[in-house]
Amino acid sequence: MSKAKHSRFNCSPGCAVEAAIGILDGKWKSIILWHLLTEHTLRFGEIRKRIPNVTQRMLTNQLRELEEDGIIHREVYPQVPPKVEYSLTPLGMSLREILLALKAWGDEHMDLYGQVMPQSQAIEPT
């Protein structure tokens, strides 16, 4: 059974980071946003080609949540077959610096992917 619409908003977040993560939470959302940031407008099939491991159902759900949250815009063109394009809204574009910072961090630490960081290397926030 699918989760209730906007179930993550049933209670107020404990902090701003929790609120931001609540919007971006989802295995594929940040990857979807990255492709829309770098390529501006994509059709469903184009997004699916860029993220080959995502199922059609999961991609549809993630896109719907991002649209409901005002992060992406879905444009439907009345033609046969239907043409649907996705792009970032101004709110979605406001995530640009965050996505660029995530990419820079990922580029710098790609060697850690799939590894468990020893506790001695963990850094506590200041």
Rank of each mutant, 00 (worst) to 15 (best):
L36P: 02
V84T: 13
S7A: 12
P81C: 02
E46S: 07
N10C: 10
L66V: 08
G70A: 02
E68C: 09
I51N: 04
L37N: 00
K5T: 15
G92P: 06
Q56I: 12
C11M: 09
C11V: 13
H40T: 04
P82V: 07
L37C: 01
M110E: 15
P13F: 09
V76K: 12
N61Q: 11
P81H: 03
A16S: 14
I51S: 06
S87G: 07
S30N: 10
L88M: 04
L66P: 03
L33K: 11
K29D: 08
N53A: 15
D25S: 15
L102G: 07
A19Y: 10
K49L: 13
D69A: 09
K103H: 13
E75T: 08
G114E: 07
E85G: 04
L59Q: 01
E85K: 04
A104Q: 08
S12W: 09
E46C: 02
L102C: 15
V84S: 02
P82W: 00
T38N: 09
Y86P: 03
E75G: 02
E97P: 01
L102I: 11
L66T: 06
Y86N: 03
K29W: 10
G45K: 09
G106S: 15
I123D: 04
W34D: 05
H40P: 00
K49Q: 11
T60H: 06
L100G: 02
I47W: 03
V17L: 15
C11N: 11
P78Q: 10
T38E: 10
P81Y: 01
R96C: 10
E85W: 03
K3Y: 12
I51W: 07
T60A: 13
A19R: 07
L99V: 03
G106E: 08
L95K: 01
T60W: 03
P82L: 06
E124D: 07
G45C: 06
R43T: 04
K49D: 13
Y86H: 11
I31S: 12
A4R: 00
W28M: 02
K49F: 10
L100F: 11
V80D: 06
R50V: 04
E124P: 08
T60F: 05
S94D: 13
P125M: 05
H35L: 03
E75N: 13
V17H: 06
R8I: 04
D69E: 15
M110S: 15
Y86V: 01
G22E: 07
G114H: 09
D111E: 15
T89P: 10
Q62K: 08
E85F: 08
H35R: 07
W34A: 04
Y113P: 01
M117G: 02
E39V: 02
A20T: 14
P13W: 10
P90T: 03
A101N: 05
P78V: 04
